[in-house]
């Protein structure tokens, strides 16, 4: 199927061209900045500007608090992945179930067997591995502990962000362990709900991905 000679011919043509290799460009000299308390506020401002909804949760009983905050929003259910490290805390906080909070639904098995359910889910919850206040992005790291599609297919995406992993800038965030090689098969930066302006540049949300992005920063 592949044509091995194409590769050789393309590379040979490129090598035959006259080349002078310039030095790597210098990035602006700037001390690497670490997460700090003010970065969470900056992230909140940036995400809010992109129409995400940002909440703060206390570190200790975050799951119970989350359940209270989600109550009364009219969310019928919340899809989560049982393999996530914080899944047990979530399950405990949701026991016993109550009328006003969304029903907690566990992702089951591989996506091939779960696709139908996934596409009808009302909301999904995942966690961000890190975040950057400038330009205001959350870093998702799907993998064995988090499906890629849980943060994408349901129309509402609830995302937990550990405050201590909020870096001042994207450049700073590259120092996070998430970017240490080898990279996860998928890393996604998210700055807000899905949107488009393809019709008369009129902004509309939730065209393919989530219509709402609910961000919970965990102190």
């Amino acid at each position: 199927m592949p044509e091995p000679r194409a590769r050789e011919r393309i590379l040979a043509r490129l090598r035959a061209a006259p080349r002078e290799i310039p030095p790597r460009p210098e990035a602006e000299a700037r001390p690497p900045a670490a997460p700090g308390p003010e970065t969470a506020a900056a992230l909140e401002a940036a995400l809010t500007a992109m129409r995400a909804e940002v909440h703060r949760l206390p570190g200790g009983r975050w799951a119970a608090e989350l359940r209270e905050r989600l109550a009364g929003r009219g969310l019928s259910e919340l899809l989560y992945f049982p393999g996530s490290p914080w899944a047990v805390e979530l399950e405990e906080a949701w026991t016993p179930a109550a009328q006003d909070s969304p029903r907690l639904v566990a992702w089951e098995g591989a996506v091939e067997d779960f696709r139908g359910r996934l596409f009808s889910a009302a909301a999904g919850i995942t966690a961000a591995a890190a975040a950057a206040a400038d330009p205001g992005v959350l870093l998702l790291r799907p993998g064995p502990e988090e499906p890629r599609l849980l943060s994408l297919v349901p129309p509402v995406h609830v995302v937990l962000v550990p405050a201590e992993r909020i870096y001042p800038t994207f450049e700073d965030a590259l120092a996070d362990g998430s970017f240490a090689p080898p990279l996860a098969a998928n890393l996604v930066l998210v700055s807000g709900p899905s949107k488009t302006a393809d019709i008369e540049l009129t902004l509309a949300f939730g065209v393919h991905g989530p219509r709402e992005l609910l961000v919970f920063i965990l102190a």
Binding site: P182, N186, V188, L189, S191, G192, P193, G209
Partner: peptide, 12 residues
Amino acid sequence: RVTTYVNLISGP
């Protein structure tokens, strides 16, 4: 400032 998604794919 940034798009909604930056999708980094490093494998299946």
